Computed example of a mutant assay.
Amino acid sequence: MENTVKCRRISRGKVKGQVIVTREPLSFLGGVDPNTGRVIDQEHELYHQNLKDKILVIPSGKGSTVGSYVIYQMAKNQTAPRGIVALEAEPIIATGAIMAGVPMVDHPEMDVLSVLENGDQLELDADLETIKIIKK
């Protein structure tokens, strides 16, 4: 099944890859190890999973403004997500994605959290403001 969904561009770029989905907001400061890309927040549903080279699908981010710099550090360490899709991009993750050069969109025209599962493939084209869902 393929489905193209309109979104709003936050950070430019085009990527394709496997998604990692969470229905919980994610804090990068204290929630993700920038050296490995692993989620280290023991209370989060993605605990122990790795964001590296995945397209992260989240409802939103949360936490301290330093989270932007964690995303930037992840990009420098080559442990950052390949792209980010958020239902609502709050300023912390949006700023981090822009600084790190990670393609990001938000406001998808459908509830992607109810459709996507870990392992699905996604084409994120922030320049065209679309995502293409390719079910596994």
Rank of each mutant, 00 (worst) to 15 (best):
L29V: 09
V32L: 14
H48I: 11
L26F: 10
P91R: 13
L51W: 07
D111P: 02
L113S: 02
D127M: 05
K76R: 13
A94S: 07
E45H: 06
I20T: 10
T79P: 11
D106E: 01
E88T: 05
M110V: 05
N77K: 14
G17D: 02
P59G: 06
A80C: 15
V85W: 00
T79R: 12
E129N: 01
Q78K: 12
P25R: 15
V57N: 06
I133L: 14
I84T: 07
S11T: 00
L128G: 03
I133N: 11
G96S: 04
I71P: 10
K62E: 03
I92H: 09
E109Y: 01
G83L: 02
Q78W: 00
I10P: 04
A86G: 04
T79N: 13
D53R: 13
G119C: 10
A126Y: 04
Y69F: 13
F28Y: 14
M104A: 00
R9V: 02
G13V: 02
M99Y: 08
P34S: 15
R23K: 08
S27A: 15
E90I: 00
E24V: 07
S64A: 14
T65K: 13
F28Q: 11
G83Q: 05
S60H: 07
T65E: 13
E88D: 04
N118K: 11
E43D: 12
V112R: 01
V85F: 02
M104G: 02
S68M: 06
P91E: 07
V57C: 05
E90C: 03
I58R: 07
L87W: 02
R23W: 01
G30Y: 15
K62C: 06
R82M: 04
I55M: 00
D41L: 12
R12W: 02
G37S: 12
